[in-house]
Write a protein that binds this DNA or RNA. Structure first.
Lengths: 208, 208, 208, 208
DNA sequence: TATGAATGAGTTTTCATTCAT
DNA sequence: CATGAATGAAAACTCATTCAT
């Protein structure tokens, strides 16, 4: 209802399908080149649309970034209920499960995720996008912040500054996608083992 | 001896000074806009040079990224001897000190660091840059990898996959710069306290 | 059948028309300035296209030279059947008729021809253009070489080195366009009379 | 005396030597690339001068073309007295000897000659250069026109339009340098045999 | 007389976006 | 709804020329 008429109101279902089509196409293109090297035409063609047709579903190239955020966070949100159910009322289990679910999404779209993670910074500065972006991202943020706060309240986690910890945990997960340089083509499970260990405090093991 | 170097044997010192000038200017420009929004002209002018003069010290816009890598890692490298001296033969102390030093550099050039951290991925794919980039980055990588390996050998740290841990710790530090979205304008010390706690295993405190 | 051609399967006819449009415009621009003084924008505008639109039909400025070669040789090729029919099996008549036809084309596009005649040398050195250029030019070359070889076989012409003679006769014709310096604004017929006389051996007349 | 003070009057002999140095250097550079690809800096360095120093001997890049004309025609002029002596009062011998001498110069500086031959057209259009260019070129022109007029007066040569014939004979010689495309790497003597034959009327031999 | 660092105008080329069909 | 030709603004990069030393 909010952005009901952004674009000549069309068949709701078609729009949804096309946007999914475009998201997946963009995801494939970004595996090959950067967001700035990739042209709108290229992404449209990859999605099976004519050069100009992408503008029926998107108002600008930058809006592709919003689409990425929406779609990826959407995939995370889809599994949250299940996670919460399984975690019962153990915030530690829930937090780790959310991180693991995030890692799954990140692994699915590594390069596109890396792009999004970087571009978000500039998108936030543009008034036209700020609100929409915040809204897209907030479920993810909350999914981390929720168990953190509960964990702290229950004395199961120790930290002072929530945003710092949210960011830190997010970065730990993001590493899988960002680590083109530092990280060899490590697979998801290997990476997960290490970051889970760090989060759980098993890294600085022995002495202490 | 006459024409010793292939590249204009120019005044060695002048080149060094100008490159520093450019580095700092780029750093300031990137605080305002993305690498792709920023024009070469803008960066040159910010450095007090005419539009075309930047090409006396850089072969292309992309080489600016190499300059960023060189300069930032350089600043880290400068403090490594001191760190190593202070750490004695305690790998845990050394690792934390390196992370802290990295965080200091990151904090000094937040936005430029974020740009570099992202663009590195594309630079690595370009054969012309790969070697130079690897060389620029390797001291940083080693500074983390060194104490990690020693720590593991001494049973002071527990992990299986070195690259994953290097990347994870790097990401933990990077968070300060990347967290435009997730992280409020948290200051360095606040952020450090949290990631140090995570690394040291104090995060999942209590129970465990 | 759907995506038969690699290059935009664009409307074949449109491409042809636009290329002709561009050829004629370039021809007009080159009457005023050199190839290197003339900007791509200027040529596009002269052709009634927007600055960047010329790149829908040409991959680079240098490809304009290929277009010149194609177009001019094309105009010569168009009249060759007629010439051959009229010449019967007299190689001398055919050779002179081909030279005359070449002179007609040269006269039609004097300056553009002069440009092409010069730039061909550099185009040939560029691997990307070599093959295409050779192919464009070869019908002209053959149109001269054919009657020459037949003439020699019949004892009607005397020469040893075919390429030298082809070049010499080509130069005789080209003179009309190149002679900005040496040649006053001599008209085509006057010039033709003299070079035909030279070729036919009537120049060093009398004695001998 | 004409252009005595064009440039801060210096040691006459030094200027002459430096200009020769530059001429030869330019000649070498043009064997590798076109006049427009070649940079002033490159030519200066090839001449053993610093980038800016070439401007002590030349007022602009275009003046290099004037230098080429001066130098090449100068080399032709040097041998004219000898040619005239040897030719006695046979205009046919003299004409052929001049053409042969021109061919020698052309062969010596093939690429540079080709450049000059083309650029002359644009130089003539620039008022600042017209007079100087005409003056440089005129000895060559006259060397051809002289014997032609005498030959016609004596009934030894047949033609109507002098400029056309001058141009045609010039083109015949120039072919050696221009024939990058049409002419294989034919050597001077081979080419000379053919154009001499054409000029002498031996080409359309037999029948007639 | 010679140098070479600096300049900044000028050029090619790309590409997001529009709109007639 | 969809297309894809056309647009034209923008940007990286080059290089002739100057001038402080």
């Amino acid at each position: 209802m909010a952005d009901a008429l952004k674009i000549p109101a069309q068949d709701e279902a078609l729009v949804k399908a096309r946007r999914r089509q475009i998201f997946l196409a963009v995801t494939r293109v970004l595996a090959r080149k950067s967001f700035h090297q990739a042209t709108v035409k290229e992404m449209a063609l990859e999605a099976g649309l004519a050069a100009g047709s992408i503008y029926m579903y998107l108002r600008s190239k930058d809006e592709i970034l919003l689409l990425l955020a929406d779609s990826m966070v959407g995939e995370l949100v889809d599994v949250l209920p299940e996670i919460r159910a399984a975690a019962g009322d153990d915030p530690r289990r829930e937090l780790l499960a959310v991180m693991r679910a995030a890692l799954d999404v990140i692994d699915r779209y590594r390069e596109a995720f890396a792009v999004l993670n970087h571009e978000v910074r500039y998108l936030e500065q543009r008034v036209e996008y700020r609100a929409a972006l915040r809204e897209s991202l907030s479920p993810y943020k909350s999914a981390l912040a929720g168990p953190l706060e509960r964990g702290r309240a229950l004395g199961l986690m120790r930290f002072d500054d929530l945003p710092s910890v949210v960011e830190a945990l997010h970065m730990l997960c993001s590493g899988l996608a960002m680590g083109a340089s530092m990280l060899a083509k490590t697979d998801k499970e290997t990476y997960w083992r290490e970051i889970a260990a760090i989060a759980e405090g098993r890294f600085f093991g022995a002495a202490g």
